[in-house]
Amino acid sequence: MNEQVKQALIAKLTALADDELILAHRDSEWTGHGPILEEDIALANIAQDELGHATVWYGLRSALDGSDPDRLAFFRDAGEFRNCEFVELPRGDWAFTMLRQYLFDVYEALWLSAAARSTYSPLAEAAAKVVREERFHLQHTQAWVERLGLGTEESRRRIQAALDEQWGYAQQLFVPLPDEALLVAEGIVPDLAEVKEAWLERTTEHLRKSGLELPLQPGYQPASRQMHTEHLWSLLAEMQSTARWDAEAKVW
């Protein structure tokens, strides 16, 4: 792997890991506050799984450049994070959280299935493993979207509002990184354009089946992972507060 490809892969792994970490953070905010005990348990599963995936991607990056995953997570500033804005949005109500998780799960399951055929074997192996639990999440969140969409007037109104707000943000999942084309050319990562096509088909069908209307105006669509919402700074201030409280500490 030449240096340019290696750097592109490091950037890609960082973006993947940051997405999972920030999404896991938002999901974990529900722990202890879910609508019923059983769903508290379910969402805590999803949060653990996404956090586990973040650890996998940081780990693959570490194998390339020797970076420390905890330093990356707890000692980078907001401007250095490369997650999409979609995952930063505050958790909102249960409809907002379930819909975001669903849209992300479809993307992730599709991306992972394709990445399992990566020419970079550490990535292929990791993707094949991670996609197993992603398939279960997807069944879970897909069931929730249908039930909220076809539940009461209130639940439909809430999940429709979430869709109107999220649809534009979700498109950022398919915006390639500046050097991602190099990785696609080498067969290291899937082509996001193809993933997007499958994602659109699948989500559109399920959202319609769930009685929801796709927004006519997609709204704001973030294009660069260098940019963030106003929420990321506060999220990180909270997430990193303990680790940064004692910078001398070698072990937590």
Partner: peptide, 20 residues
Amino acid sequence: SVHAADPFHALLTARNVFAR
């Protein structure tokens, strides 16, 4: 047992609760 709304939801819930 689990509390759930419908059969498939109950099955998903059972997996989350009893296969941690």
